[in-house]
Design a protein around this nucleic acid. Sequence first.
DNA 1: ATTATATAGGACTGAATAGGTCCTATATCA
DNA 2: TGATATAGGACCTATTCAGTCCTATATAAT
Lengths: 155, 155
Amino acid sequence: MCGVRMVRLSKLTDYASVILAQMARQPDVLWSAGQLSEDSSVPKPTCIKLLKLLVKSGVLNSTQGARGGYSLARPPSQIPVKTIIEAIEGPTAITECGTDETLCRLTDHCSVMSRWRELGDQVDHILTKTTLEDLISPHTLYARSDRRIETLEVH
Amino acid sequence: MCGVRMVRLSKLTDYASVILAQMARQPDVLWSAGQLSEDSSVPKPTCIKLLKLLVKSGVLNSTQGARGGYSLARPPSQIPVKTIIEAIEGPTAITECGTDETLCRLTDHCSVMSRWRELGDQVDHILTKTTLEDLISPHTLYARSDRRIETLEVH
DNA sequence: ATTATATAGGACTGAATAGGTCCTATATCA
DNA sequence: TGATATAGGACCTATTCAGTCCTATATAAT
């Protein structure tokens, strides 16, 4: 049968968001893994693992060698939280339905799955609109009129 | 540190939604576990486990004994998908932050967590508005103007 | 050149969770 | 009383998550 993952914020994604928030506050600094580990209190090995994942997914740039380190690849306002989640937890993709057609029509399984998929799309919409900038803002998401969750259009 | 679970649709919740959709199509039938297992192609032991969880959470009523079975406790329109998810996967509650205050102010961890929590609230809003009736509808969620995701108010 | 300091890219382990099964008890109907 | 159904567990296995560690490579300073 099918499996859908809509959103899941793991411990590691939590860590990553704290680390990224730290970096976003001083975007021009080249941060070493050690420094970020200290500031965020995320154990260094784990911190390094997260930084690698974030580089791999294009959220961070890295500079190798002595005096190297990490920096944001884009401004915080251009890093959706969806990107951060997917960098750490892998794609939130919806697995395709493998149910055979006869059974499908019998049980309406595919029909129900379509609705779940639409729900997933709505969640996706929220996670794409919300960015790292929002995460480090002292104001609530709701207070920012330009970032309110708007009515989705029929498509 | 903190852990947040926003939404997670597991395989078992997928199964449960199919079973509930089956029941919702004929709300007055008293369904046996065996019948539901056959119709949904969910293995019987697993099916039974799910039905028990749904009874425990108040989504289903059960009648014991011969000719017993299960039926919806409420009309499909009054069963939010959030309730279904929580019945199977447990509360999607947000764990409280255990970070001490000094560290918290240093790393802005609590501040970032507040934003994640707000995101979780938005997702919650969607999952509460969407019901079992929507899941079994042949029409997309978006096409139903009365169920569109509306702008959240500041609170 | 050499050394110290970083990141790159894996492999690997233990813990937690999810998925699935089974057993015994209890309630109801014929 | 026997057949049929749910109630409520215990239980096992597979998978995923969290966390650590090791070796290779790149850079800067000496």
